[in-house]
């Protein structure tokens, strides 16, 4: 993919630096009260992280380890992490980690995006939903794979068991990202990696950026595991609804397979993630408990903000139409 267009001084500096590393302009300073909604910040973070995944064909080949870029990213992350800490840090209890994760998930009183998609979404709205999701889903599971070399024993076995499923268990056509492509093609969407990044709002990029933050920094390994557990634990019920919505809108079973696959697969994954993955990690690292919960809480919070963003937009359109 190519570098997306800038959205402000931060992304303009970063893109310039990646295209012409010999340039010596000083990076702009940054402050923001609402980092998750800041277009310039989230796009800059997304580009900085993407250098560690597929990268950009028009960026310097070693931009990934450019010290100026790393220092710039660290500056952006300070505000971003400070906001996540303020909004998402939760107080741990003495209960088993799996129970605490379940309580967090159950307490999440988010907007009912999946119920809306199931019953009311138009084909255009479904298309918009899937285009937004594609920013992460086309590299589904990749952020959490960064955790594999950082954990041991039963934690590693549990993580690899989940990830192996995500990647199709040795069968590329069953890879979740590939199943997602089938759904995209049904909707007439372009399934090229990163195609919808230029038009994705800050909150959609933030959903991906929080995973990448936890993936890039070994220090955030417990949060990465907690984040994965929250994804798995909030997957089966919404995906059932998304599948029903897709079928209502004329999808074939194959078009909707991405969603139905997640009902069966994540019924397994949520147990492994909560009990075997996070359970064994916290047994080995008792002081990491709070960060595991923090990672889960961040996943839930951003998913919530994303759902609000779509539903608010759709509600506004309904008002205009009626």
């Amino acid at each position: 993919m190519r570098l997306p267009p800038a959205r402000g001084p931060l992304s303009e500096w970063l893109i310039g630096r990646l295209c012409e590393p010999q340039r010596t302009a000083v990076s702009p300073a940054y402050r923001s009260k609402l980092p998750w909604a800041d277009e310039d910040l989230q796009l800059s973070l997304w580009i900085a992280y993407e250098l560690h995944y597929r990268g950009f064909e028009d960026a310097a080949i070693d931009g990934q380890w450019d010290p100026e870029v790393l220092a710039f990213r660290a500056m952006l992350e300070r505000e971003w992490v400070a906001w996540l800490e303020r909004e998402c840090r939760v107080m741990p209890s003495d209960a088993p980690i799996a129970e605490q994760l379940r309580e967090l998930v159950d307490a999440e009183d988010g907007p009912r995006l999946s119920a809306y998609v199931r019953r009311h979404a138009t084909l255009d709205q479904f298309r918009q939903f899937v285009a937004n999701k594609s920013v992460y889903q086309l590299k589904e599971a990749d952020p959490h794979s960064f955790g594999i070399p950082r954990v041991d024993g039963p934690t590693k076995a549990a993580l690899v068991e989940i990830q192996s499923d995500e990647y199709g268990g040795g069968r590329p056509e069953r890879m979740h990202a590939e199943l997602f492509r089938t759904t995209m093609r049904w909707l007439g969407l372009n399934d090229a990696y990163g195609n919808y990044v230029p038009e994705a709002p800050a909150v959609t990029l933030a959903v991906s950026n929080v995973m990448s933050l936890f993936a890039m920094h070994r220090r955030w390994t417990p949060a990465l595991l907690g984040h994965l557990a929250a994804l798995e634990m909030t997957s089966t019920l919404p995906n059932r609804q998304y599948a029903a919505g897709a079928l209502r809108l004329g999808a074939t079973a194959q078009d909707a397979r991405y969603f139905t696959e997640h009902v069966e697969a994540d019924a397994v994954h949520e147990q492994i993630a909560a009990h075997d993955l996070c359970g064994s990690y916290v047994d080995d690292h008792p002081t990491a408990l709070s960060d595991v919960l923090f990672g889960a809480s961040c996943a839930l919070k951003l998913d919530n903000l994303f759902a609000h963003h779509l539903l608010d937009q759709w509600k506004d359109k309904q008002c205009v139409a009626s």
Partner: peptide, 8 residues
């Protein structure tokens, strides 16, 4: 098979 309904 389980479909996650138990969590409700």
């Amino acid at each position: 098979l389980c479909d996650g309904t138990h969590s409700l």
